[in-house]
Amino acid sequence: MTEAGLIAIGAGLAIGLTAIAAGIAEKEIGAAAVGAMAEKSETFGKGLILTVIPETLVIFGFVMAFLIIGLAE
């Protein structure tokens, strides 16, 4: 396997694994937020904010992936 291939796999892992992590975290928050919204629809804004907090993980993963791809150049 070429070096570029390994770099590509690394970048893919960086974003893929963080996305899975964010998904696992958001799953629980999202379920709770939907529950709260069903009871009280005004909680939409707060629910949305709380639900997307773990998305930071993907963003860091995305930046890492970008830096890793930078290694190839």
Partner: peptide, 15 residues
Amino acid sequence: PGLFSNILSYSRLMA
């Protein structure tokens, strides 16, 4: 750290 993740979060515009 939130400040930086907030700013980087705008990369979704491109992504």
